[in-house]
Simulated scan of single mutants.
Amino acid sequence: MYKILIVEDDNTIAERLASHLKKWNYKTVCVRDFKNVMEEFKKTDPQLVILDIGLPFYNGFYWCQEIRKLSNVPIIFLSSMNDNMNIVMAMNMGGDEFIEKPFDLNVVTAKVQAVLRRAYALQGTANIIEHGEMLLNLGDASLTIAGQKIELTKNEFKICQMFFESAGKFVTRDAIMTRLWESDEFIDDNTLTVNVARLRKKLEEAGMHDVIRTKKGIGYMLV
């Protein structure tokens, strides 16, 4: 499930957008504290930002610049300030798309989908694998659970990727060790057990209990 951060001063417009996008299975978060947009951005860790230009305290151009210091997440500007100068400035500041107000919700949805496809398509395959509340980003090797980013080691990420790609099916220990052997780090049976245990602990600390099932003599399954 892609997470979208909506930075819009008009509560009616923000809630209308949020409600509509939820129907398309997007998780939406609306910023309320316009002095601390970056704090909400870091907390949410969205895959897309919808950003108005005319905001209290600092305008959308400022927040776009601040976001770009940390992230290449796609940004869609949404504004009634739709003269050519503002559109060009929005793109030059790092925006990926510009939607004029008033807008049609179906047009917004289409542009959101197009921007996400461009940003997260990798050789025709989604760059993010979703399983329940967990999002595995293959682009930056990160795992996000309910908005919380989980730090993974290189081997933990490779194991996690195999689990996500085979969710609901058992992955054999031999298959995992073969994948891990692609690195120059020595992997034996005990090392694999330790890596899986550490991964399981990190998931549990993030609130995901009993999502990795072990079957003796076979392997593991993400449930």
Rank of each mutant, 00 (worst) to 15 (best):
K3H: 11
V7A: 08
D9M: 09
D10S: 15
T12A: 15
T12R: 12
A14G: 14
A14N: 10
R16Q: 13
S19H: 13
H20I: 11
N25L: 13
Y26C: 09
V31A: 13
D33L: 05
D33V: 02
F34R: 02
K35R: 13
N36Q: 10
V37S: 07
E39Y: 11
K42I: 15
T44Q: 11
D45R: 07
D45P: 00
P46A: 14
L48D: 09
V49Q: 09
L51H: 14
D52R: 12
P56W: 15
Y58S: 10
W63R: 03
Q65H: 11
R68G: 08
K69M: 06
I76G: 04
M81L: 14
N84E: 14
M85N: 05
V88W: 04
M91D: 03
G95N: 02
E97F: 14
I99G: 07
V107P: 02
V108A: 12
K111N: 07
R117D: 12
A121F: 12
G124C: 14
A126P: 10
A126C: 12
L135N: 08
N137I: 02
D140Q: 03
A141P: 00
L143Y: 00
A146R: 09
G147C: 02
K149S: 04
K154R: 09
F157Y: 15
F164N: 00
E165Q: 14
S166Q: 12
G168H: 06
K169N: 12
K169R: 12
V171L: 04
V171H: 03
R173Q: 10
R173K: 10
D184A: 05
F186N: 06
I187Q: 05
L192N: 05
L192V: 07
V194M: 10
A197R: 10
L199T: 02
E204V: 00
A206G: 04
A206E: 03
H209Q: 09
I218K: 14
G219N: 08
G219S: 10
L222G: 00
